[in-house]
Design a binder for these strands. Structure first.
Lengths: 225, 225
DNA sequence: GTCTATAAACAGATAGAC
DNA sequence: GTCTATCTGTTTATAGAC
């Protein structure tokens, strides 16, 4: 993936310059890493000049913080939209296992298949693996809220308290099954002999994960009953 | 984690200089990334001079390749030792599920608790997430062999062919549960309220993963019988 | 707010003495 | 093989014109 050569900045306006810089930095930091990206490169991709980074964000590090804040805002917009849809789909919390399956498929689509907000995931992965000062925002505004939400679903499905140590660990094991396919995308692609991981492949993986989680939930229910 | 200030190079000798450079690069590339590490930094940590990198490896990129080869050699030494031990522990392939549990615990200890070869994991994680020319070696010499070995165990435990698409995907879901706790170590640490992920915490996580896999295997056995 | 010019530090690679 | 000095280009940050 390469940054489009089209202008990210539509016309004049300070807000548009700012937004174009944030989006260019999001993409380039995700692809090449923070140290692997120069401010000149970012300014060029955003159709702005080098000085504008210092003016709007103070420094390169300030730009990274702004990128993190932009991610959190985007994620929260997506989350509230999904919640509105989820309420429509499952009027009562009729079957918690179904809700978990839906959540897994949504997260898998977001992290691995990536139709929307594809630029966000590489940046977030890098922050998770090697936290920078910007990680604080990503954790508090994205990782923790998603994990909490999953713990609530887990409680509804198993009866195990959402706040218990066991539940929190179990939810991480589910998130690991999903995100690993993004982290190790190239290894998976090679080992599976796939040219790329397309929608069809994604469906197979997603099915395997939801099946795993269904088996785990069923076994837990069996043991506690 | 910071590189020890002690000398990595014991005395003279070309091989010792070479080895010290590889080890210093392994640690620093893992901690700070390839672009985030300067050749001067590596030479200083290895108690060598900058020119020695060009002499021994041709370029910074050549050093990265040498690091990858060193990792593969180390992994293969560990793997053959483990195999020798595994034969002692389980004389016949009496219970394949036990062998899988043992494999998971070994991998978890290697990737997350990290008593031995702790420096290797960060470097490998970075190559998985953002493959460089050195990834080829890591994949062929470490990732694929481990994955193949796990697929064989999976076949022994479930009857599903080791080469089937389903088996390969399932093995990746297990590896994901393990490696995620290393990738997202900082997020896990915060969410669990742990000061660090020590041996006791590792035991809890490992138990959760082995329990998950046991449930998945049992459910698969149930369905095919 | 935007843009250019420049400062000061640092990068990787190389040449050549020993 | 080791080490120093240096070349060439690039880095972030800044100063100041417009």
């Amino acid at each position: 993936m390469v940054v489009e050569s089209q202008k990210l900045k539509a016309s004049g306006g300070a807000d548009q310059t700012r937004a174009a810089l944030v989006r260019a930095a999001l993409i380039l930091f995700g692809e090449q890493g923070f140290e692997g990206t120069s401010t000149r490169e970012i300014a060029a991709a955003a159709n702005a000049n080098i000085g504008s980074i210092a003016y709007h964000f103070g420094s390169k590090e300030g730009l990274r913080i702004a990128v993190a804040d932009h991610i959190v805002a985007t994620i929260q917009a997506i989350a509230s939209r999904n919640e509105a849809e989820a309420v429509k789909e499952v009027p009562a919390s009729q079957d918690a296992s179904l809700a978990i399956t839906a959540m897994i498929e949504r997260m898998f689509s977001f992290f691995v298949v990536q139709q929307e907000a594809a630029e966000i995931v590489p940046f977030v992965l890098r922050e998770m693996a090697a936290p920078s000062p910007a990680f604080e925002r990503i954790y508090a505004g994205m990782i923790e809220p998603i994990h909490k939400r999953c713990c609530d679903l887990w409680e509804a499905a198993t009866g195990e308290p959402a706040g218990s140590e066991e539940t929190r660990i179990n939810v991480f094991t589910v998130m690991g099954q999903i995100i690993y396919f993004r982290l190790a995308r190239e290894a998976v692609r090679r080992r599976m002999g796939w040219a790329d991981i397309d929608f069809e492949h994604g469906a197979k993986i997603s099915k395997a994960i939801t099946s795993n989680v269904a088996d785990i939930l069923a076994a837990k229910k069996e043991r506690t009953s």
